[in-house]
Design a protein around this nucleic acid. Structure first.
Length: 425
RNA sequence: GUGGGUGUAGUUCAGUGGUUAGAGCGCCAGAUUGUGGCUCUGGAAGUCGUGGGUUCAACUCCCAUCACCCACCCCA
């Protein structure tokens, strides 16, 4: 049997990694602009963290976690989402003793979910996330939404839409649960088996079901928005106003309930319209009770996670490509053994001067070296050897126009630097 | 987890029971003396996903298995 990467995993190959780096750079810059600092937490955590954080009625916890016992008998789980680990670290290291709010982000943290792979759905994927702790203000909710939108806009993605909703808080949600449960119970016979269970433990999730019967059954269901308490309602109204101020008319969609239990008040998704339907790029919201559930102080929070694979996928769909860095600017070709030594030496000198330089490592013919240099897309080729080398010189050829000139070896670095700068392509 | 499709060189694919399995692109090299892109010529490269079975004979038929793709489910 041939070795291959495990089901649902992918190798990031050199020809695509530059696109990732470009996207990462934009994420870092936007996070930094908003005062967020990077945090890196372990790939695995105690299973307990996710049971308490993510919620044990969720699909993620019930059937999608990579959980195993380690050799010490501890139950360990590979991160199925990014927020819980960040919250654990925040609590463990008392980061909340710093001036509030605490703003942190994680970049391409690997995320694991055991499910059937499909387009844009892997068992291991990577997420960028921003989390803001210690403020109840809707401006924080607006900030994280606008930050990630700014990232997506800078990348150049089109056809994006933002859906928001409020799912209330411990004050108002019980009342809504009751009303929703009463409503659905009257139509229970039309619900799918899964939703019949959900009805008891988490009726909100029935609204998210895609089964036709359930969709019909939930038509005309009471809306959470009608049950929000004064505080939640005011929060939601202000958030919408803030987004609107920034020219963002978010689509209010009471069907957005999210797959994680820790959310309170604001939940949102960023969707992209594709020819095959819509794809969720980003999901997030407010989680005012989470820090306390994890064993920390009562500290509100709001944030999001976004899948990098999906961003890259959609970039390809939309024909958006990251600028491709030139691999090598100058190639040192050699004519003979003496030239090979000198070319190697000159190559290292150029690198020391900050020039992307390379030389022949295959002992190839000059013709082949040129062919190779051409494929690399280099801008200048220096031919080292022969009678020029005896005079301490090389022939320097510009690959774009084929023009050659002679250059002294000892002046090569400054000359090359100047030419690369002048003819910057 | 359920249902459908696919699996042949690095890659995109041809090849449906019969000698040493093919093509385009890519890769490597050559086309007279020290030079790329175009063209021409040559070369390397495949346990035909894996394991069983049927047959005188299997890439081709059957079974299983693995992986990928698509749908459901869910979401990033």
């Amino acid at each position: 049997m041939q070795m291959q990467s495990p089901k649902g995993t992918r190798d990031l190959l050199p020809k695509e990694s530059h696109a990732w780096q470009w996207v990462e750079q934009i994420m870092r810059e936007e996070a930094a602009l908003a005062g967020y600092r990077e945090i890196r937490t372990p790939v695995f955590e105690h299973t307990e963290l996710f049971l308490r954080g993510v919620g044990d009625t969720t699909d993620i916890v019930q059937k999608e976690m990579y959980t195993f016992l380690d050799k010490g008998g501890r139950s360990i789980t590979l991160k199925p989402e990014g927020t819980a680990g960040a919250v654990r670290a925040l609590v463990e290291h008392r980061l909340y003793t710093e001036p509030l709010p605490i703003k942190i982000y994680y970049l391409n943290s690997p995320i694991f979910r055991y499910e059937n792979p499909q387009h844009g759905r892997l068992r291991e994927h990577h997420q960028f996330g921003m989390e803001c702790f210690g403020t109840m203000e809707p401006s924080a909710d607006a900030e994280v939404i606008l930050s990630i939108l700014s990232v997506l806009n800078r990348i150049g993605l089109k056809n994006l839409s933002v859906k928001i909703n409020s799912i209330g808080c411990p004050v108002c949600r019980p009342g809504y649960h009751e009303a929703l449960k009463a409503f659905l119970t009257r139509r229970v016979d039309r619900l799918c088996p899964l939703c019949k269970e959900r009805l008891e433990r988490n009726p909100l999730r029935v609204l998210d079901c895609k089964v036709e019967g359930c969709r019909e059954a939930s038509r005309g269901a009471p809306s959470i928005l009608d049950y929000l308490c004064g505080e939640c309602d005011a929060h939601f109204t202000t958030l919408k106003a803030l987004l609107s101020t920034r020219g963002l008319e978010a689509q209010v969609d009471s069907g957005i309930v999210r797959g994680l239990d820790y959310y309170t008040k604001t939940v949102f998704e960023i969707i992209v319209q594709t020819p095959k339907g819509e794809m969720t790029l980003c999901g997030g919201g407010r989680y005012d009770g989470l820090v306390e559930q994890i064993g920390g102080p009562s500290l509100p929070g709001v944030g999001f996670g976004i899948g990098t694979e999906r961003i890259i996928l959609e970039m390809q769909n939309q024909g958006v490509s990251a600028p491709e860095p030139r691999l090598t600017d100058v190639f040192l070709a050699s004519l003979d053994d003496e030239g090979r030594r000198a070319a190697f030496n000159a190559c290292m000198e150029l690198r020391a001067a900050g020039v992307k330089a390379d030389c022949d490592h295959q002992a190839r013919s000059l013709k082949s070296q040129f062919r190779y240099a051409d494929k690399l897309g280099v801008r200048l080729v220096a031919v080292v050897g022969g009678e020029e080398l005896a005079r301490g010189a090389v022939r320097l050829k510009s690959m774009a126009d084929g023009v050659e000139s002679e250059a002294l070896l000892e002046e090569l670095a400054p000359l090359v630097l100047k030419r690369l700068e002048n003819e910057s392509v």
